[in-house]
Design a protein around this nucleic acid. Sequence first.
DNA 1: CAGAGCCGCCTTTTT
DNA 2: GGCGGCTCTG
Length: 682
Amino acid sequence: MFPMLDRLNEQQRDAATATADHLRILAGAGTGKTTTLTARVAWLVGSGVRPDRIMLVTFTRRAAREMVARTDTMLGSLDPARARAGGKVRAGTFHSIAHRTLRRHATSLGLPEGFSVLDPGDAADLIDLVRHEHLARRTHERRFPRKATLLDLYSRAVNTQRPLSEVIDQVAPWSADRVEDVAEICRAYVARKRALGLLDFDDLLLHWRAAARDEHLGPALAEELDHVCVDEYQDVNALQVDLLAALCADRDDAPGLTVVGDDSQAVYSFRGSSPRHLLEVDAVFPGIRTVALEQNYRSTQPILDVANAVGQDAPEGFSTRLSSVRGDGDRPELVTCTDEDAEVEAVCVRVLAHREAGVALREQAVLVRAAHHSALLELELSRRRIPYVKYGGLRFLEAAHVKDLVCLFRLADNPRDELSWFRLLQLMDGVGPVSARRAIEALGVDRPGTPGEVLARWPDAVQCLPSGARAAASELVAALARPSGESTGAQAERLTAALTPLIEGAYDDAAVRLVDLEALSAAAADQTRVSDVAADLTLEPPHSAGDLAGPPVIDEDWLVISTIHSAKGLEWDVVHLIRAADGNLPSDMALTDREGLEEERRLFYVAVTRPARALHVYHPVRFHHRPRGRDDAHSYGQPSRFLSDRVTAGMARAQAGAPEPVRAAVRPAAVTVEVELDALWQ
DNA sequence: CAGAGCCGCCTTTTT
DNA sequence: GGCGGCTCTG
């Protein structure tokens, strides 16, 4: 009846077929978590639950996609006819499911029918607008949190459901005496979003929770579901727990809940997450049953020995200890590199050696703590014509020119979009924040009346701009008018063409950027409105223009570069962990408190548990202060503190790069030069 | 003299 | 790419 159950071990089968209302699966790295969760979904369907009455909440889109593919395969083999009749499992990230729910119930929730979703960049711009308005009314004589910090404070307070003052004490203690100012900005930000019909990512969760708690809507939402599965539960925050509680507890016929997680892999505390929610889950869902998975199917034992040693080094230890079913293999390698150039060289050499030995590039990944750690490596890979795809770090949507076009698309459907006006007007020569703001004032975006009336005021608004900018601005605005009967594709092309001269004027590398805009414009052709592209990109941001154009050529091979955060839940045959130097990993930004250090340790643990067969850890000894500059200014770094004796005991060691030349002075060269010059000025 | 623009600095992690 | 700080321009 359930062929997939035969391939599971005893604990996995136990978890997949548990009949308890609520179930917690504690699953260490590589223990077959996804297999077990998909088997559980299949088992539920086999027991008579309709697929569309199961909600599968994942943490990233990557995980959602993988889960959907695997459940589809499994359900298809189970009973194709019934699986089709029962619809599809409702799968997605917290935010995408929230978005779908809010679109469906916008009116009952009191949201404007066409509400738009702010991407984090827009949210920052909006809070910056509010920040300036607030500070303009006060003489600010000293440092005040910047927009990114303000948004972080706001978001943490919302997601952890803790008072702002506590959050400030923890995140920005230097602003502890400005709580009232920050609070006022938060209030104004909330009001502004409401006035303009905008929801940020946190609002999606807040309104979903409100819906789930509502006395009419809540029961209706819960009645649609028989079971809710949540992946990576160690990464949920208080708001998400609230939401799940509203859906799956506090009512008699509540849907069942299955949560899967591993507290040793909790790495999102900066977003308000806490592994406490996984460990203390019975406080919210009393009587929840627990099954633990401990057999690791991914990695060879020498790799797990290193991982376990990392866990042992933690002050309180890790709750999971991994043992391999794959058995012995090569020892992980620790490569000490003279400097970053030597590190890049060492990585290339090993990547190519593995490839010669039959490991495709796509079976290999380079993992980094911070996106910019791979900058030098990327240059060298391009030079050597080694293709790669990078995950994490700057998104396609965050590139300036992409935002420019997205704003133009949004403006075409909503002339009230203040943020888009503000951005686009400043593309004109001689237009800065001040005249842009004056022009927007003249447009009266928040005045009552039809959107068309806003555009009708353009002749007044254009007078607020410097005379040299008026012609170009009017030309762009003229493109916003849509000839009746024009297709979305044609409109997108026309808007792109209107923006092109401005892009050429504003950026040196315009040619490269225009290629991206073509891809973006093409994507608009399939949509009902050009602004839908903007909403789609916000919730499903592609990593590159290539993603937008669809999957790359089938037989092409490329190396994966990923931040450790983006690599969670994934595995490769070979993993290269670079910049394992103190200050980079752990990042010195995270070392403000002990919890920060422990989270960095878990991050290190996540990284070393990704490979199946080979792990290479690299650390440069010497760091250039200006990697691209010509001077030789540099400093020395220690290997990561996580590379303790216990951890390195299980590793082979190697050196890369020329040995350090003997130096007359210990002091770095650039500093010496400065000292000598100083003597001249006397 | 307000406001645009340029230079040089730094850059954690993400839905 | 963004930001603070400085300089130049209309």
